[in-house]
Computed example of a mutant assay.
Amino acid sequence: MSDSIEGTVAAATGLQNWNMMQEKDNLLLRKVLDGQANTILSLVNSVPTAPQLANGGMVGTLLHTTA
């Protein structure tokens, strides 16, 4: 009977260790994803805004195209 108790304790300890490693990996992944998100956000914010199209006058308002 002590073999089954020792096996159960060993299995529980192994699962706790596995859970701890998974939590550490998830934390690392979250930090990497946050860093990438910040990098992408800074790149998007660094792009100048697109110029506005003409909505009056003779230039840029009379051409009609369909694809």
Rank of each mutant, 00 (worst) to 15 (best):
1 M>Y: 05
1 M>V: 04
1 M>P: 06
2 S>A: 15
2 S>P: 02
2 S>F: 14
3 D>N: 10
4 S>E: 15
4 S>V: 14
5 I>F: 11
5 I>S: 08
6 E>L: 03
6 E>Y: 04
7 G>C: 03
7 G>E: 03
8 T>F: 05
8 T>K: 07
9 V>R: 10
9 V>C: 05
10 A>F: 08
10 A>S: 15
11 A>Q: 12
11 A>H: 01
11 A>W: 02
12 A>S: 07
12 A>W: 00
12 A>E: 01
13 T>N: 14
14 G>R: 01
14 G>E: 04
15 L>H: 15
15 L>R: 15
15 L>G: 15
15 L>S: 15
16 Q>P: 03
16 Q>T: 14
16 Q>S: 13
16 Q>F: 10
16 Q>R: 11
17 N>G: 08
17 N>I: 04
18 W>D: 13
18 W>G: 04
18 W>F: 14
19 N>I: 01
20 M>V: 06
20 M>D: 15
20 M>H: 10
20 M>W: 07
21 M>N: 01
22 Q>W: 08
22 Q>R: 13
22 Q>A: 10
22 Q>C: 03
23 E>P: 02
24 K>Y: 02
24 K>A: 12
25 D>Y: 15
25 D>S: 13
26 N>T: 12
26 N>D: 09
26 N>H: 06
27 L>F: 03
28 L>A: 13
28 L>Y: 07
30 R>Q: 05
30 R>N: 03
31 K>N: 13
32 V>D: 01
32 V>H: 01
32 V>E: 10
33 L>S: 09
33 L>Q: 11
33 L>E: 13
33 L>V: 11
34 D>F: 05
34 D>L: 11
35 G>S: 03
35 G>A: 06
36 Q>R: 12
36 Q>K: 14
37 A>T: 11
37 A>V: 06
38 N>R: 08
38 N>F: 07
38 N>D: 07
39 T>N: 11
39 T>Y: 12
39 T>W: 05
40 I>V: 14
40 I>W: 09
41 L>W: 03
41 L>C: 07
41 L>P: 03
41 L>T: 12
42 S>K: 00
42 S>Q: 12
43 L>I: 07
43 L>G: 03
45 N>E: 09
45 N>H: 04
45 N>V: 07
45 N>I: 05
45 N>K: 05
46 S>C: 02
47 V>E: 00
48 P>D: 07
48 P>N: 07
49 T>A: 14
49 T>P: 13
51 P>S: 04
51 P>T: 08
51 P>A: 03
52 Q>D: 08
52 Q>W: 05
53 L>S: 06
54 A>F: 04
55 N>P: 00
55 N>A: 10
55 N>S: 11
55 N>F: 11
55 N>T: 15
56 G>D: 09
56 G>R: 10
57 G>C: 02
58 M>I: 09
58 M>T: 10
58 M>A: 13
59 V>W: 05
59 V>K: 14
60 G>H: 00
60 G>W: 01
60 G>P: 00
61 T>F: 01
62 L>D: 12
62 L>N: 14
64 H>E: 14
64 H>M: 04
64 H>A: 08
64 H>P: 02
65 T>I: 09
67 A>F: 09
